[in-house]
Design a protein around this nucleic acid. Sequence first.
DNA 1: CATGAATGAGTTTTCATTCAT
DNA 2: CATGAATGAAAACTCATTCAT
Lengths: 195, 195, 195, 195
Amino acid sequence: MSLREEILDVSKELLIKNGFGNISMRKIAKRLDVTATSIYLYFKNKDELLLSLIEESINNLNRSLKNSLVDGDDPVEQFESIINAYIGYALNHPQEYEIIYMVRAEEMPKYPKEKFEQIRDTYEILEKVIREGKDKELFEVDNPLISAYSIWAQTHGIVSVVLNKRLDTRIPTQQFINQAVEHLVQGFLVQKTPA
Amino acid sequence: MSLREEILDVSKELLIKNGFGNISMRKIAKRLDVTATSIYLYFKNKDELLLSLIEESINNLNRSLKNSLVDGDDPVEQFESIINAYIGYALNHPQEYEIIYMVRAEEMPKYPKEKFEQIRDTYEILEKVIREGKDKELFEVDNPLISAYSIWAQTHGIVSVVLNKRLDTRIPTQQFINQAVEHLVQGFLVQKTPA
Amino acid sequence: MSLREEILDVSKELLIKNGFGNISMRKIAKRLDVTATSIYLYFKNKDELLLSLIEESINNLNRSLKNSLVDGDDPVEQFESIINAYIGYALNHPQEYEIIYMVRAEEMPKYPKEKFEQIRDTYEILEKVIREGKDKELFEVDNPLISAYSIWAQTHGIVSVVLNKRLDTRIPTQQFINQAVEHLVQGFLVQKTPA
Amino acid sequence: MSLREEILDVSKELLIKNGFGNISMRKIAKRLDVTATSIYLYFKNKDELLLSLIEESINNLNRSLKNSLVDGDDPVEQFESIINAYIGYALNHPQEYEIIYMVRAEEMPKYPKEKFEQIRDTYEILEKVIREGKDKELFEVDNPLISAYSIWAQTHGIVSVVLNKRLDTRIPTQQFINQAVEHLVQGFLVQKTPA
DNA sequence: CATGAATGAGTTTTCATTCAT
DNA sequence: CATGAATGAAAACTCATTCAT
């Protein structure tokens, strides 16, 4: 692994462990047993380093979601599959997920808007699935784009609660996720009238 | 307004604008045209200041939610009312709302657990409503406690997206909220079988 | 007890516990549950407070030594008695003793020389006893004044070691003192030639 | 001279001049015309700097005493030689000597015990000499270890008085030292019975 | 007699960054 | 490709002291 990659890795780790405010070039350097100066060989400054971090994380998430798309023509299945993939990614790569969503625009003022727009890829995937489901009268949605955002928002909420450990200790995580996803999906389905 | 209150106010503002890592006693002081030392007359140290901030915010949210509870015996109405109150509070007091959820365990290690537990009041209100709805066979829920958390999580997700301005610029905020809440509520209702 | 006395008392305590560098008006005030400002009602400033402290301590030591002087005409007895009184005072009032001797001129630049001269009273007492012993050919000393200082210096050394806890843990304090004093006294006596 | 050494030197100077409480990283830096930050390149923090100072001083004293040991088999001569070496070192290196004994447990709580134990080397040298003298019936001592400590204590007292300038101005320093040492030694010798 | 509010200078320490090598 | 030495700005916090009340 190149030093550049090592720097990104350690940064990721420190960022999550200590938060945005407590990451420092020196700490990164010390962890890698190099001088802080060396970091500047690979990144122009701290902002650029953090930027690379976010960019990389977003790309990983997008790639992961695209790969998760099951073949097949059942939009409901695809719907559930994509939500689970999203949650799965977030829980399996909490660091990267947090980097993407914990970044507050104000804390990273130099972060160019275009980068964030990359995340939109995800909604488009979602939107397509919803549109298909709507056409087949499986989903009861008004506006697929808004719905895509709604789904994403609700899913993000579920993930946040888990990642931030705000869950009541009496509740098993997995059970919470299952139920929450069930409710979430239910909210978009056409009410099946019993025979 | 007393200096103590002014300090809390400015802190709130700076906290939101700059994030947890970039708030500093000096900046707070400079904004108020007092010396940093003066802050220590009202707060033992930075942690205590932030603590007061969070505590105050949580109390305000709780109070606001309790006040929102409509009288009446329709659990569905109460359900919607509470969600809307929550969202309303968050959007009307974005600073305080963010303060409550910005706190990451790692960044505020000295934050006493009991304070966080205060937020649980909210779930209990929610849980009670759900339990009633379940008894009246209006809500299709398995476990009211988990459902309460699920609702809260999803609502938080909706709010987050709006507050963090991650919404597609093509989507009007209010419309997004309406639709999202509709889906959210729908996900918990018993499917009404047509006559 | 008046507040002035209470201030002196607490100062004494803090001075010993924390050393000269770590004593502060605020700490004194907090300990007494008064505002720091109140101290200024009794002492012009910090230096004057410390000054009063030293002055008081020196007076106490002098008074104590004078009281210890046994009546009688045996200079050797008086010699031993005065040394023991000195050590006794130091060990029983370690705070005051340390204040007197741990004060380094440099740390208390505003301390007027005259105050320190007050300690000379002690030597004069000692000198008188030695002179008497010399006249009776009991003490083998050259210059009573120098000898007085020598005795005082050596006694101070003994006390220092004990107070600063630099004694080997295997050595019982009392036994150390007894032996040291014995050697000390022995060094000044005329060698008795056996019959 | 390296900056590290320069820092130690200036620190020594300031420590003596201003005492433990009034030494500051900034003052050290200013004296050397470097920024305070630079000190941290050589010492982890203030405590480590002071520690290095003490350690270095103790080592120097020990080395100096060991070198002073005259060859030969006369314990009395060796006894006097070691005391004079001790006093000589203290008067020639007053800064370092004071540093060693200035340290009060309370002011340097982080000071590792092992460092202090290094001073014990000195006593052991002394103890050995005394034991030999006792065997040859030259010294009238009960317990060589206690006697070693007693000698050291008394010598320290003599040195203290001189270094702290507490000597009566009428007394010439050298004469005081000579007489005091004479008395000190006398106190440990077997009383020679005339033929 | 005592306080409460405030200050300005001081403290140690950490940070991102630069520059010569 | 990497370092070692250094800096200037900023951080949190403490201190002695003043002043109006």
